[in-house]
Simulated scan of single mutants.
Amino acid sequence: MAITKRYTPTTPTIPENISKDELSLVRSYLLLTFIHKVFERDCRAIGKSGLFKTPQLYMELVSSATKKTSLMLQEVTRELTSHQLKISTVRQDQRGVTAEYNCRGYAGEIHILWPGFRSEMMQRMRAYLGLGAELASVLPREERVEQMALSI
């Protein structure tokens, strides 16, 4: 669940509200940025590990997902620009991910707690890799959560 805090430091009147679609763009930008970094890191790790007989196959799979996230991230960035929405700061701590944004002169903040963020990351990553949701039950929930890095 995302928690949003809005404020205007110099203007007493509140400018145009930020829509749910615009907040969704901020959320998508955060998720895609983190997912892209995870895929890039995993691809490098597969190539360097020496554990795979055919690392190029797995690297090709992850590289394909990396390209998908890159294209989607470009599209989300274009949408952010068209909505005059700029993400100024992204922070992560033990509780979750926080992004500060400006939208048409209006400053705000969105905070997404780790459990929800990780869960949505895993769902999206599975989709970008072409995996069905039915395979998610192969690992117990605790193991799936532990596989996700705490920081990117």
Rank of each mutant, 00 (worst) to 15 (best):
F117H: 06
L32P: 00
T69P: 00
F34A: 12
V38C: 08
A149F: 10
A99M: 07
T13H: 11
L61M: 14
V76M: 02
R27M: 01
I112T: 05
L32F: 12
V138K: 11
K5H: 15
Q147P: 01
I3D: 13
E120C: 03
E75F: 03
F117D: 06
M148F: 14
P12R: 07
E142C: 02
R118C: 01
A149K: 06
K68V: 02
K53D: 14
G47A: 13
L135S: 14
G105K: 00
R95C: 04
A107T: 08
I112L: 10
L80D: 01
N102P: 02
E143T: 12
M72Q: 14
R118D: 03
R6T: 12
V62H: 06
G50S: 12
D42R: 04
T13W: 10
T98E: 03
P115E: 15
Y7C: 13
E120T: 07
T77L: 09
S24P: 01
V26L: 01
P12A: 05
F34Q: 03
L30A: 08
S24C: 01
Q123C: 09
R118L: 08
A107W: 01
A127F: 04
H83E: 09
L32W: 01
R141A: 14
T33P: 04
T77I: 02
M1D: 11
S64T: 09
I46D: 06
C103N: 05
L139E: 13
H83G: 05
L131R: 05
R144W: 08
K48N: 15
G50E: 13
A133I: 03
E22T: 02
I14N: 11
Y58D: 13
G116N: 13
L71W: 01
R126N: 12
L113T: 04
